[in-house]
Each structure stands twice: as C-alpha cells, then as structure tokens.
Amino acid sequence: MHGAGNDFIVLNGIDQDLSTITREQWKALAHRQFGIGADQILLVEKATRPDADFRYRIFNADGGEVEQCGNGSRCFVRFVLDQGLSSKNPLRVEVAHTILSLKSHPDGQVEVDMGAPIFEHSQIPFDASGLKSIQDFQEMLYAIPLDHPATHDSFVGVLSMGNPHAVQVVVDIESAPVLEEGPAIEGYPAFPNRVNAGYLQVINRNAIKLRVYERGAGETLSCGTGACAAVVSGIRRGLLDSPVTVHTRGGDLQIAWAGIVNDIAQSVIMTGPAVTVFEGEVRI
C-alpha cells in the first residue's frame, strides 16, 4: 500500500502469529531488490487494551521497530476495512504511546487524529545541552552543528508526533541538502533515539512544500508525522495558519492544528490518501 507515495507492506498479524520474525527478516522483506520493498512494514494485531480496536506496530526498512507512522496509519485503517477485519468507522488503534482515531471518508481519503504534539525535551527525547538556541516567535530553535562542507549550523525546531522530528525552514526545497545533511541530523547525539529531519519551504500561509529524511528509511516520498511536525513548527514560528496543505513529492496532505489552548496542546488532524497497490503471499 502507499499513502502519498510513502509505501508499506501491511501484514495481518491477527490470523497468523508473526511474533517470531526477526529484525533481519523484517529488513529482508523491506529490501527493494531482494524482498517486497517498502519504506515501512505495518503489522495489524489484536489490541492489548480495552479502549482500542486493534494494535498497530511499525518496522522501518532497517528492521527496527518505531513508535509512529502517520501515512501508515491511514493505510492501516484502509487495510482493516478492506480485509473485513472490522466494519467500525472510525477505528481506535493502539500505538506505542497512545490511541489513534482513524476515520475513512467515502472519497477514499482517511482522516487521522494524530494526538497532540509533544514539546517536552525528555519525552521527545532531545538533549539540548551545549547547543546554541534562538527564539523564533513561540518556537525555540536549536543549532545542530554539521561537518558536511556544503552546510553550516542548521537551526531546527524540535518536537515529537509520537516520534521525534527536527524541522528546518529552507528557501528552496529542491536544492535543500536533504541527502547530505539528513543522515548527520538523524544520528546526531542530541537525539538518543535518532530523529526524522524535515525540510520545509513556505509557499503561503496555508501551503508548504516538504521533504523528510526518515529514521531508518532515508528520504521518502512522503511522511505523515513529518507533515504534522512541519505544520506545527511553522505555526509556532508565525509562518503558517491552519489548515495547511502539505505538498510532498508523493502527493498532498491536509493538516489542521488549533494550537495551544489554555496551556493544552490540541490534537493534530491529518487527512490524505491510502491506496492498495497489490496483494500477495510471501514465504518467510
């Protein structure tokens, strides 16, 4: 399946036991030459808590398990409904740290309540010790020193959408050093669990272009949590107004965020496509 070009293997872990698959086997399945090929692998499982309909697990192309995947969550609900695993709409889905509400629309678009963004450094997690910082409206930006000769310190806004993101604003998205800087930012020691590196170009107050270098996957055609993080960061920097259309290389996403109301961060609402490409079986 794919969500705006961000492609996934989606597996039914309810009718079969997939608990013994190893990291190397996940990695082999995601390999584009020797496996099926995918940015991430999504696993549908029975819920472990009473307030959820399903459990949702995500494995990156490098075989490592991660906390969240926004584009994948839309494909998750489309898979569950199309496979007849449930007729509920919306669905409540258990991920690593929270419950997501997923709603399928008649036009094929899927709406996801992604929950509230997290700014507390310990919860991202992010260690700002020793980093230069500047205040930009409501957002604190931090300088990530990079060794790449074509770059300089990259000032990023840091937050979590269930997974960590470092977002920077660029003048031109096409010439942004995503592939040069992305790996260095992803693995920078201030991010103990690594980080997704987002590059945001403002088109107008309700539209942006976005590229994301994702943890464990490299640059992808789209990143749902990255789109949410970019819009939140852009609003907090005074650059954007909700709702925002996010143009990625794989397609468009609609992101809405009401900001912080009475000191409480509101949920981010993401709407976008979820498409099945093909179905099949693989022997592991």
Rank of each mutant, 00 (worst) to 15 (best):
Q109P: 00
G182C: 03
R237V: 03
I58S: 02
S133V: 06
I14R: 06
V244S: 05
I235M: 15
P192T: 11
Q68A: 10
A116S: 14
K27G: 04
V232L: 04
G162R: 04
D153G: 08
V171W: 05
S87L: 07
R57E: 13
N206Y: 08
F8A: 05
F79V: 00
F79H: 03
C228W: 07
E67F: 02
L146G: 00
I124A: 04
A217Y: 01
G251I: 03
P243Y: 10
Q254W: 09
V110S: 01
S19C: 12
I58G: 03
E111T: 11
H148M: 07
G250I: 09
C75Y: 02
I124R: 02
N71P: 07
F34P: 08
G63N: 09
E214A: 07
G13H: 06
G3Q: 02
V231A: 13
F155Y: 15
I14V: 14
V246I: 08
F8L: 08
Q135N: 12
D127W: 06
Q83G: 01
I14P: 03
H97M: 05
V95T: 14
A217L: 03
G35D: 10
W26H: 15
Y142V: 04
N12C: 11
T220N: 08
L100M: 08
G108W: 10
P149W: 03
G115F: 04
H97T: 09
L85D: 07
L239S: 10
V110P: 00
P149I: 01
H165K: 08
A38Y: 09
F119M: 11
D53A: 05
I144C: 00
D113G: 02
E180N: 05
I269K: 07
D107P: 01
D15I: 02
D172G: 06
G130W: 13
F59C: 11
G13T: 14
D241K: 15
K209H: 11
G64T: 08
V66E: 03
P273S: 14
F76M: 00
V170K: 05
L131F: 10
H165S: 04
R236C: 08
G250N: 05
T248S: 14
A38S: 15
E67Q: 15
E174D: 15
A166W: 09
E65Q: 15
M270K: 07
Q33H: 15
S129I: 09
S19I: 12
F8E: 11
S104K: 13
D172I: 09
R78D: 06
A176T: 01
G280R: 14
G251R: 03
V246K: 09
D39E: 04
T248E: 08
A143W: 10
I36H: 01
V261N: 05
D241Q: 15
E281M: 11
I9C: 05
R237M: 14
Q33D: 14
D136R: 12
S160W: 11
L85H: 12
R249E: 08
Y142F: 14
F191Q: 05
E120T: 13
F59D: 09
H121S: 10
G216C: 07
G84I: 12
E111V: 00
N89C: 02
